[in-house]
Structures are given as structure tokens and as C-alpha cells.
């Protein structure tokens, strides 16, 4: 039993910082979108009423527009420019896919910039590992 308590303590100690970090994310759980759900919308031709923005390595996803890696100020300006004339109630989905969220330098500045601009309907594509595993390997629709 002592061993179990030790393990639980250890687990809490390891998971603790991760939890603290996720609490600081600018998005909520509800603002995460499952990749399969987006793929289905695109496949069914229902992707036209949504703006899909790539803020990482490449605009892999079909119909998405590339704003460039958002950790660079120049790309954040590009992102703002792309959204300059977009209505604030437009559905926007952003994605990066370089790496897991805890290591990604792009999604936080991008998400914050877009919500700070006043957009009300912004979501983050939940590419848990990366664009390869969670999109390309599943043969979801792509731009090329």
C-alpha cells in the first residue's frame, strides 16, 4: 500500500506540471476540434463555410490557407492580414501539427492573436501528435 501511495505521488508529481501548463492554454477543451470531424466535413463538401488556417510547417489540409509558423512576428502579421476583412463571426479552425501541443511554439500565439482580434468562433484542430500521424497517415484530404 505504501508503494501505491508512492506511485500515486510520483504520478501526480509528473503529471502536475503538464496540467498546470494546459490550464494556461488560451483555448478551452470545447474549442478543440477532432481531426476526423474536420476531415468528414471536407470530404462531404461542407468545408467551404469554414476558414482553415495553417500556422505551422505547411498548409497540408485540403482548402487550408498558409499563414506560416506563428512563432515569428512576420507570420503573425501575415495572419492578421489574412483575417483583415473576415467577419468576426466566421468559423475559423487553426492547426499546426509540427509536434505535440506542449512542444509547439505556434498554436498559442496564433490562437491568442485571432481571439484578441475579436473572432468569436475559433477552434484548434486537435492534432495530438503531429500532422503526419493525425492527418496524413489517416489519408484525410490534402491540398496536394
Amino acid at each position: 500500500m505504501k508503494y501505491l501511495v508512492f506511485l500515486l505521488t510520483l504520478m501526480f508529481a509528473i503529471k502536475g506540471p503538464l496540467k498546470a501548463q494546459s490550464a494556461a492554454n488560451p483555448w478551452t477543451e470545447k474549442q478543440l476540434m477532432a481531426p476526423g470531424a474536420l476531415a468528414e466535413r471536407i470530404t462531404k463538401g461542407q468545408g467551404n463555410n469554414v476558414m482553415i488556417l495553417a500556422v505551422g510547417p505547411d498548409a497540408v489540409i485540403k482548402g487550408s490557407v498558409n499563414a506560416g509558423p506563428a512563432h515569428e512576428a512576420a507570420h503573425l502579421d501575415q495572419l492578421k492580414n489574412l483575417l483583415k476583412t473576415t467577419p468576426k463571426n466566421k468559423e475559423i479552425i487553426i492547426y499546426c501539427g509540427c509536434c505535440p501541443f506542449d512542444r509547439c511554439p505556434n498554436i498559442r500565439p496564433a490562437f491568442k492573436t485571432i481571439t484578441d482580434m475579436g473572432f468569436k468562433n475559433v477552434r484548434l484542430l486537435n492534432l495530438e501528435k503531429n500532422i503526419k500521424t493525425n492527418w496524413l497517415d489517416k489519408n484525410y484530404p490534402t491540398n496536394d
Binding site: 501505491l4 506511485l7 500515486l8
Partner: peptide
């Protein structure tokens, strides 16, 4: 109990390797 410990151990290791 052993099984529970095993699961706990695996879940710790899986996130760190």
C-alpha cells in the same frame, strides 16, 4: 492490486519515453 500497479507504472513510463 499488482495489475493496478502495473497499469500505473505503464502510464507513467509511456508518457516519458
Amino acid at each position: 492490486m499488482g495489475k493496478l500497479l502495473g497499469i500505473l507504472l505503464i502510464s507513467i513510463l509511456a508518457t516519458n519515453t
